[in-house]
Amino acid sequence: MAEKYKVDKDLVRMEIVDFTFPEKEYRTSRHDTVLPYNWALGPTWTRFFDGLKEGKILGTRCKKCNKVLVPARTFCPICYEDMQEWIELPQEGSIETWCLVNYKYYGQVKEPPYIIAQIHLDKADCSLTHFIGGFNLSDPDKVRGKMKTVSRVKAVWSKEKHGDIYDIAHFKPV
């Protein structure tokens, strides 16, 4: 990370090195925010990501309402009960909605174009946010045509897994 920003020790200021603003005709002060974080995953999400590393998509079931939620949850958002029953979910599901992202911005997690979608995995009671891919996305009109025919998708795993959400590379049409 060190190469992505530099510290101006004199002005006590951070500067992100791979980003420039367009020239302005009035006087401005560049002041980038660079902050380190160390997020605690807690037991539930640690186990969920361990599962991804092993090529498994894990959810948890609420013992009260019986709903299966993915990503796995510590507690049911409706019943507020602990969700301690772990379920391995099928890696296929249907698309609830999708959006083609075809513009760039700073800090984007993926090079556009890409499709972000809500995917309802079989046996789950909610949908999961992830990418749709595995075919040519360069022409928006063709993408629209193709997506009209797609209803079912299947997880494609990344070659290298790090125990994070990108261990699933994307979902591809079945």
């Binding site: 997020w39 605690a40 995953l41 807690g42 037991p43 539930t44 999400w45 510590t74 507690f75 507020y80």
Partner: peptide
């Protein structure tokens, strides 16, 4: 220092 829990889980501890 509550590294044992995710942030929502910590909030839930107080709410419960």
């Amino acid at each position: 220092r509550r590294d044992d829990l995710s942030y929502p889980d910590l909030v839930r501890e107080a709410v419960k």
